[in-house]
Design a protein around this nucleic acid. Sequence first.
DNA 1: TTTTGTGAAGCGCTTCACAGCT
DNA 2: AGCTGTGAAGCGCTTCACAAAA
Lengths: 211, 211
Amino acid sequence: MPGTLSESARERLLQLMRMLEKFALSGEGGAVTSTQAEQLIGWPRDTIRKDISCLGGPGEGAIGSSAGYDPELLVPLIKRALGLDRRRKFCVVGLGRLGSAYINFAPPELAEFELAAGFDSNVNRVEILKATAPLYPAYKMAEVISRFGIEIALLCVPAEAAQAAAEKCAAAGVRGILNFAPVALWLPGEIEVRNVYLTDELRALAVKMKN
Amino acid sequence: MPGTLSESARERLLQLMRMLEKFALSGEGGAVTSTQAEQLIGWPRDTIRKDISCLGGPGEGAIGSSAGYDPELLVPLIKRALGLDRRRKFCVVGLGRLGSAYINFAPPELAEFELAAGFDSNVNRVEILKATAPLYPAYKMAEVISRFGIEIALLCVPAEAAQAAAEKCAAAGVRGILNFAPVALWLPGEIEVRNVYLTDELRALAVKMKN
DNA sequence: TTTTGTGAAGCGCTTCACAGCT
DNA sequence: AGCTGTGAAGCGCTTCACAAAA
């Protein structure tokens, strides 16, 4: 049934898409079957087929053939379904060790994300660091974010400064925040926050490691 | 029913634990009710209570009272259930911008993880960088990892070097890898791998941001 | 009245099984 | 034989509703 994609289905499709992209540019132009996909990403083939069947537009007929799925056809469908078919601008807030590690980041795959700016309250850093994107002092955040239509912020400031910086981002129009600071952010509900905090990652890993 | 914790239940308990720790050291020594927890972490109170009820040892009686749950009692129970009641050593492999950002990392909460070593193939970096943990040249990885019983590796090397480095870790006895390099690792099944890759995080965030 | 704790109902996702096709 | 696509069954998690206690 098109239109309904569970949380888990979206996650599987994300993995599938990544795998298909790798597969496509690794030479082999052919189709990918659900059986192959099962071996590569680990989910049952039936589940994968069901997920894919949810992507179909109304009355567009089959997505795959009995030879399998064509990555060239499937990847765009997944992107559309996941809302990844649009370019989004993001910025890095806080250019310490972590922030400056990301400031030269250019996603190797077809860039659906564009690094549009970097900010730091320390003017020295802004002037010294080299980056592919323009760097600005922190007081220009609101202006730059709204002028360029930046939608996502990578929050790399120290924990003490995180909440205030996040609020500035939100007020300026940012709609999603990747929070690398070890604090929980309290923001209006329409802002999506995703925490990337080392302790949590370590814990999640340890939990999976079982005993 | 003790013993059965779904994937999602474990994730909720992880969040709950984090919240309880914050709550406990923020002064207020009192109990936390499921209603408060609902407001703080967002999951329905019934679900939270069910999750907690799964923690109970056999015949130990109630975990909470009608005043709520005592963090001092609950947090250890959660840690035990999630296998986080044991100290684990980890190391940082690759001391570039990202790796060196983590080399001074000391988790603010009661450290259930101990940074035991850092490695880099560039001997200069090893000698120049300052860190709370000892740093070694890469060729000593196998020896140091097994000598100290390091269980987890933070893989911060460039993409080209990731697979080889991961294999060295695995061979030396590491049982979990936090992979910051933008490549999928192929490792024996008993090694847990958790990818922390910026593009994936951005995508996941964008998906949640909907339209 | 608030709370926890829990059996049972409800519901959504996964899995099965099979039809149709190459 | 393989493959996709899909209704239906199965099952697991969440939610409900209520008992018991403070």
